[in-house]
Amino acid sequence: MIDYIIRRLLYALPLLLGINLLAFVLFFVVNTPEDMARMHLGQKHVTSEAIEKWKHERGYDQPLFWNGQAEGAGRATQTIFYQKSLGLFLFRFGRSDGGRDIGADIGQRMWPSLAIAIPSLIVGLAVHIGFALLLVFFRLTYLEFWGVALCVALMSVSTLFYIIGGQFLVGKLLQLTPISGYDGGWNAVRFIILPVVIGTMAGLGSGVRWYRTLFLEEAEKDYVRTARAKGLSEARVLFFHVLKNAMIPILTGVVVVLPLLFTGSLITESFFAIPGLGSYTIDAINQQDFAIVRSMVFLGSVLYIIGLLLTDISYTLVDPRVKLS
């Protein structure tokens, strides 16, 4: 088992290096620090001294890969690649273009993101699986037909409408919860309810449809027929036999997104004014803060790769048939 994990970790290394290079090429080669400086300082009426000063303050005034003017090891270390990109491997994010410490910002902002993302995941999972089981329970009836049709219709509505509509209905007309905002401690619960409900609603169509196909696939297998033949009630077959066996694909779907919960949802956080990592990223995009976007790209990729790793491990834990090789 340890062997397997180590091997998987080693396999992740070239991937991380590739992502690091990709981010580096996107942000420093395709788009030179000079362009960044111009975007921040304005396109016209900007002196080359001002650009040099901007680059120097942020450490962008070094060569990309190889510093011919430096001595010894400095030739490789006094470069943008070494200082800005390799540091990401050690989660040294450095400073944003606005001068803030990105690492500290991330450490602080991931908590509100988690506060929204974890309840959303749990509630969403429970509701989607519940409805999907109901649809499978009533299969080959009109209820199932119209349920599936409703799912397709729900899928066809943009997330933005769910959020705007939900905020309007629950927050403004019914005034059950605040429309947006966030607060520390237990007060946060008031602000979390609406995003969680809306997030669950927005994913209802595709979620229910997805789990329904999973359950239907299971429900056609031999052990289910055996269970029915034994005289077990349909409900018992569904909730004990089918659900248990369908847990494996469900689990893989969930485990892979677990690490990404840290980075939060861009849209939800921005609509509900939650000071998490999602809104952090959006703000960075809007302010064209390349340092933050680069850090978030790398962080997101690392978390995704961790998710894949966790998925593989969890597979071996829940399904004894899966062999490590």
Binding site: I19, A23, L26, L260, L266, T281, V293, V297, G300, S301
Partner: peptide, 11 residues
């Protein structure tokens, strides 16, 4: 591996 929205944003 790069989350889609972030890659799109960067590009």
């Amino acid at each position: 591996s790069v989350p889609g929205v972030l890659l799109i944003a960067a590009a």
